[in-house]
Amino acid sequence: MTALLIIIVAALLGITIWQISKIFKLSQPIESDDSQIATNKDNENQGKLFLVFIVFFYGLMLYSFWSLSKFYAPAASDHAEDYDQLFFISVALIMFVQVITQFMLHWFAFKYRGQKGRKAIFYADNDKLEFIWTIIPVITLSALIIYGLFSWSEIMNVEETDETLVVEIYAYQFAWRARYSGEDRTLGEANVRFIEGINQLGVSETDPYAKDDIITTVLHLPVDRPVLFKFRSQDVLHSAYFPFFRSQMNVVPGMTTQFGFTPTTTSKEIRNSDYMVDKVRNINEIRENNDNLGPDEKSYEFEYYLLCNKICGVSHYNMQMKIVVETEEEYQKWISEQQTFGELTAQN
């Protein structure tokens, strides 16, 4: 409701400005010049408005960094730190360029606003200047490219060792499933053509490797152990987006894609971090005042989540899976309580 008020106020404000400008215009002595071409006075006014505008723009940038950059999600995987560092360097660099170039642009628009009798300089070319502003971007960008490519190949080339946990993430409209490879550490064969009844993921019932596979609706990950995800979709494109782990990979029907990371912060740890405590308190206050929520929905506790980030149909906006990062012992305990695929099919 407050928002609606804001709109009404804004609209009224707009109308007021419009009316004032109209009155202002009418009260002016009739100008001889109505050519609709900028006059000396227009140049003066518009030039000054560019100064006002740059103040507004800097203010907006400051406000955004000051009060919105806290939304940046905390990092919880091994490569996230490297990612964040590259991100902050890039942001610092582009904001540096942004502040300077925007200032020059708007300042020149003000400083050189047209005046009667002013002569513009006839200045068509300067090879030295152009060389400078070609070579500077070349050098900075080269540095960024090289830095970025090192990180990229490090993130994307996941080496599978004895320690690596292999998990299949299976996507369909509109939910996720996780399949663990079990004791043999090998995922059983699977294809959509095997889907039948309770065998929702199309795992081969004849493949011996599949017998000990474990299919779950919540993704549990042991902390500090590399995980290699194999992604499979049964219908359309999805994208497995793990914002806290700085990871994302599209899930493509007809092929298996992969991505790996090592979670470094358990769910419990991140829940108790200062950042998350503050954030969750704030969210709970918002939820408390939200009349659309039922009493049992009011209280929120942070959990990691995986979400779909490639348009996949009507319920795309609600295709999520809970992720629990826990200690190795907790994980072992949890996984030992899960039903294997062999047990599942044996029931039928």
Partner: peptide, 10 residues
């Protein structure tokens, strides 16, 4: 190009 011009702010 703006630098030292005589900007007609149309």
């Amino acid at each position: 190009t703006l630098w030292k011009g005589n900007l007609q702010l149309n």
